[in-house]
Simulated scan of single mutants.
Amino acid sequence: MMSTHEKTSRRILILSTFGMALAFTVWASLSPLANQFEALYGLTATEKSILVAVPVLLGSIMRVPAGILADRYGGRKTFTFLLLFTVIPLLGVGFSTSFYSLLFWALLLGVAGASFAVSITFVSKWTPSEKQGTALGINGLGNFGTALAGFTLPTIALLVGLQWTFWVLIIPVVIMAALMWFWTPETPQTGEKKTLLGSLSVLKFRNTWTLSLFYFVTFGAFVAFGIYLPTLLMDLYALSAVDAGMRAAGFVVVATISRPLGGYLGDKIGAGKVLTVVFLSIALGALIISFGMASIIVMTFACLLVAAVTGVGNGAVFKLVPQLFPKATGAVTGLVGAAGGLGGFFPPILLGSIRDITGTYTLGFLCLALLSILCLIINKRQFDKSTSRSFVEANA
């Protein structure tokens, strides 16, 4: 029979995962509808790219203060406030009458992406250390909200119109905020509350920067592929937008489903060993894409390989975060999560620039392979060792 704490922990895990999935649907809501906004406002390709990128950028940056707030005030208050705040930009997008007003609300819509840091912090605080990898891996399934936006919002827009698509999202957001407030307990405070400067003191530890680099690669690749793969596939193989979009959604689904496996394996054999395989596989996948992208079959295999291992890598990285920083999980989660989000923001721009300059994407994927090899070397030196122990940083 489960204890009261175990029941509470499970309830928090379930609600936080669904809450993050819903928030990620809101966060990614503009991307699948970008073509309709292009037609509505006569946007250029650059303006459309900016519209899609703005929420990603702010959502990444906002993970830092969101994680700190979750540490300071608890997951229940922070998550509820974040969900209710997203109602404002959802209303605003529906009332927009120009590109610039839409861009303003798109910026605020990015706050929904910060739900990742809040959810991870909330779940980790209520989960025993020996089960955190598995629990946080399951919690990471909330990333599926990105694919959910692509699967559902275009159809909703056809049924109720572009304006009402965003207003319809308000209903589940408010319901989820109520569930979070009334059905989850507040996180017990341990020790004195840290100031903002105190929370950011984790930046002085090497492990903070190492985990940020790792997540920049694993989660960054997940986001970058999810965002840019439709454009890449249409350019390389002249696929239709629907076909390319479905293939990209498949990438997101594979990466999301494999994330819990990374956390589970991190619990069982150690996150360091898991990350060694992950970075080797990402490097291999990137090399296969670099030299084999002429074939859609080879490209499909390589992309699915990268999807699976980036998902596993995301889970493994967040096995290490609460393990190394049990007293500053929110702050480190925010910083690492921000690095991952930024890792998804810059590669599409880099790939597009390389394509314009060289005529191919090869150099961009070679950069991914080299960065993965760098992470592999660092991981072998820091985390993939025969014995594991707590670090001094754990008391940060």
Results as ranks from 00 to 15, higher is better:
159 L>A: 15
47 E>T: 11
284 L>D: 07
37 F>V: 06
265 L>T: 05
204 K>V: 12
16 S>T: 15
6 E>S: 12
238 A>F: 15
287 L>A: 15
234 M>P: 08
308 A>R: 01
359 G>Q: 11
35 N>H: 14
334 G>R: 00
168 V>K: 02
117 A>W: 00
255 A>T: 09
79 F>D: 02
222 F>S: 03
195 T>V: 05
330 G>Q: 09
307 A>Q: 08
59 G>S: 08
308 A>E: 07
135 A>K: 03
364 G>L: 04
296 I>C: 10
67 G>E: 01
83 L>W: 01
277 V>D: 07
23 A>N: 09
74 G>I: 04
339 A>I: 00
241 A>R: 13
197 L>G: 13
185 P>K: 09
318 F>E: 04
245 G>M: 04
187 T>C: 14
317 V>L: 08
237 Y>A: 06
120 I>V: 13
1 M>D: 10
70 A>W: 02
384 D>G: 04
72 R>C: 10
43 L>V: 06
15 L>R: 00
125 K>R: 14
202 V>H: 03
124 S>D: 05
291 F>Y: 13
130 E>Q: 14
186 E>L: 13
57 L>F: 09
318 F>L: 09
378 I>Q: 04
197 L>C: 13
380 K>P: 02
68 I>C: 11
194 K>Y: 10
344 G>Q: 01
131 K>H: 15
236 L>G: 07
22 L>H: 01
334 G>W: 00
335 L>P: 00
44 T>W: 06
